[in-house]
Design a protein around this nucleic acid. Structure first.
Lengths: 234, 234
DNA sequence: CAATCTGTTTGCGTTGCAGCAAAGTCATTG
DNA sequence: CAATGACTTTGCTGCAACGCAAACAGATTG
């Protein structure tokens, strides 16, 4: 870890409130890893040996059912922690984390968690804050799956991706990593066919532009209308 | 709080590992409340003033959407914590907690959380362990909603309720609090109509016996088959 | 630059389940 | 103990979305 890296890291959410010295002590104990696109940072059911900070890239967190169906739990963006099973008293990872593009991560041995939490209280608080919001997200998603229909769920998913990882282009806001119809389907509990149909429909209405593994939202506001619209139907 | 109560409490999961003295210090700072059936322990969006331990009864945790649809997030059984927003850095409750029957709860002011976590590390660890399993549950439920169809989801929900709160009777295992078709529907993302149809079908097959606000599972094993069955159909 | 592979589109038939409506049953209450 | 209200059952209809199949791009590779 170069000193340069550390200065970049100091601004990240998990480390808010930590002194430079403490940050140094933490980062000094991490290994930095490169994970090639498609490779796993950690795997479902695997023993939770480490916890991670994503420095660069995008990671897909995926749960696979016994019969092989996959569900995308969330996408991790740079600056976020992942694999924090240790903080929650678990000994195995509940899902797999797959690099959506080439990634750089910091990895700490899981056994350091208790030390860190004790020595750097702010780090603990920050971590549990993100756990809290992920728990919220999960519940929100359950509610959404129970009450909303497919088109709205897909619209929501796109908007969330856009706000999380969107990059402005002259055509609109582009989701900044390769994402297939199948991926979107696995985020929203539908099939790639349905996603494809929705995207072509929305493209005709000028709300999005999409191509192979790529989606650009051109009219976020209109898409939001569609996602939340109080309108019954039309 | 009588000394008797404290001895009952000492065995509960959130307090594993605490000394009698520490337990006393914690419980000494709690108020004990009775909540009548149908009343709220805390309410969605409300300021998170306290966190709670359910001593007796059953509590339904419910999320309501802007347009008034309800989803049951989980049921809380005696001995479980609830309303632990503070532990996750939140200032409002993300859901409402409604007494399914008359309940007794202990309530601590939320501001005590940081003190407790610092003074009684085991309590913190226990709490975050339950947060971990609730996060798991939530994700499992997302996966289930995405991949399983209604009958299996309902079967799963019943089995979970049975294992959580089941009481043996001569007819089978009874879910130990009043639960309507509507409730089951709100747990599984379907309608009371569909739940009703499923229950009558299962009753004809001898898997369950059910009546007004009451369900008894007579053949848990068979119901599990139905919930998990690798069989394609029939 | 063919050949192959991976991802996408689209048409068509099927269906699980919601939505509506109405009747039936049990519990509560004045 | 009639009457009101809460919960449940059941029939019928419609449609959103799945599943299958086949064709259609863009990439990638030898």
């Amino acid at each position: 870890m170069s000193r340069l890296d550390r200065s970049l890291i100091s601004g990240l959410a998990p480390f808010q409130g930590l002194s430079a010295v403490d940050l140094d002590r933490m980062v000094g104990q991490a290994r930095s890893l490169r994970i090639a696109k498609g490779e796993a940072v950690f795997e479902q059911e695997g023993e939770a040996h480490s916890f991670f900070l994503l420095l660069d890239g995008h990671v897909r967190v995926v749960k696979t059912t016994p019969d092989g169906q996959q569900v995308i739990v969330r996408y991790i963006s740079p600056g976020e922690l992942m694999g924090i099973a240790h903080a929650l008293g678990r000994t195995t990872y509940p899902a797999s984390a797959i690099a959506a593009v080439d990634c750089v991560v910091l990895a700490w041995p899981g056994r350091l968690w208790p030390e860190f939490a004790a020595a750097f209280p702010d780090f603990g608080v920050n971590t549990y804050r993100t756990v809290g919001s992920r728990l919220q997200d999960a519940h929100t998603r359950v509610v959404e799956m129970s009450t909303e229909q497919v088109d709205r769920r897909v619209a929501h998913a796109l908007l969330k991706l856009v706000s999380q990882t969107g990059r402005r282009t002259d055509e609109g806001v582009l989701i900044d990593f390769p994402i297939s119809r199948q991926d979107i389907a696995e985020m929203t509990g539908t099939t790639l066919h349905t996603v494809s149909r929705l995207l072509t429909a929305w493209e005709e209405q000028g709300l999005v532009k999409s191509g192979r593994q790529k989606v650009t939202v051109t009219e976020p506001h209109q898409l939001l209308m569609l996602a939340e619209g109080r309108t019954s139907k039309t």
